[in-house]
């Protein structure tokens, strides 16, 4: 059972990674906690669901959902963050503002879904299981692991090896200096939000598929865990978010399997406190870590 549980945890953790990367990216670039990220995740699942039941091919529905959640995230930036950012000292007001956006999106989703739990129609994704060295793994789990691995690799490449990535790191390090060098910070913010939203949307679809359940509050537990991931991984650290997500997924599986029921969250948050005591900046973070750069 141990290896099966570790596999289960890695699959769940990989989706946490997708969710948390967007969250940590926004924090890394803007130093803002985007509480609407959970609602964007939920919106991704809902949009893909309604596209699918409207007859759109599933792959197109996923693509549309990612674009739509990217746009939603941009709107979040324009509505909830941009004006506050201009004023400076935006951390706390932006936090409250993003909570407001989250509540609005959740309320809309509740109305649209009539408070019902939604699930993709049977047959949306082939239900196939393989047994390998005693491990039972589904085709969906394999696809999720592969998809997340490819997307994470692409994101890292994008941030480290492209002009946009250098601009992101420049803005994250020092917005004013980047602007003096000709970087359009507003454009960087918008692109960052789009990527974060699209990743959250995809994570929502994958979770909806994997666990056969989507409801208007589905973002809340993931939001809470994303906090743990970014703190343990190191605020703003992309590699940290990935490692912490996988750790969290595996730990969650193992605590459910081997410890008394109900201890999972207590253990996860106890780990958070231990990490904070030993490494206050997280496993991969330093005091100035920002999305692959170092804030000056």
């Amino acid at each position: 059972m141990l290896s099966q549980q570790i596999l289960n945890g890695l699959v769940t953790g990989s989706v946490y990674a997708l969710f948390s990367l967007g969250f940590t990216l926004i924090f890394g670039v803007q130093k803002l906690l985007n509480f609407a990220h959970g609602a964007t995740f939920m919106a991704g699942a809902f949009i893909a669901y309604y596209c699918t039941i409207s007859g759109l091919p599933f792959l197109l529905a996923i693509g549309f959902s990612m674009v739509a959640t990217g746009v939603i995230a941009i709107l979040v930036d324009l509505i909830a963050f941009r004006s506050l950012r201009k004023r400076g000292n935006a951390e706390f007001p932006a936090l409250v503002s993003s909570i407001g956006v989250d509540l609005i999106l959740v309320s809309i989703a509740q109305q649209v879904s009539k408070t019902q739990v939604l699930n993709f129609p049977f047959g949306t994704f082939p239900v196939k299981f393989y047994t390998f060295m005693g491990l039972r793994i589904s085709l969906l789990q394999l696809v999720i692991l592969a998809t997340v691995a490819v997307l994470v690799a692409l994101l890292i490449f994008y941030l480290k090896k492209t002009t946009f990535g250098r601009q992101v790191r420049a803005v994250a390090t020092n917005e004013r200096a980047a602007a003096l060098l000709g970087v359009n910070a507003q454009s960087v913010y918008l692109q960052t939000f789009f990527i974060a939203g699209a990743l959250a949307g995809l994570a929502g679809v994958l979770i909806g598929l994997l666990f056969n359940s989507m409801q208007f509050l589905m973002g809340e537990p993931y939001m809470l865990r994303a906090f743990v991931v970014v703190v343990i991984g190191g605020l703003g650290s992309v590699p940290g978010a990935i490692v912490a997500s996988l750790m969290l997924g595996v730990m969650q599986s193992l605590t459910v399997a081997y410890l008394p029921s109900g201890l999972t969250d207590a253990i996860i948050f106890a780990l958070l406190f231990v990490v904070l005591l030993i490494r206050p900046n997280g496993l991969f973070g330093d005091a100035n870590a920002v999305a692959g750069g170092t804030r000056q």
Partner: peptide, 10 residues
């Protein structure tokens, strides 16, 4: 609000 029961199910 949970939907991930993979560990529990296993």
């Amino acid at each position: 609000a949970d939907s991930d029961f993979s560990a529990l199910a296993t």
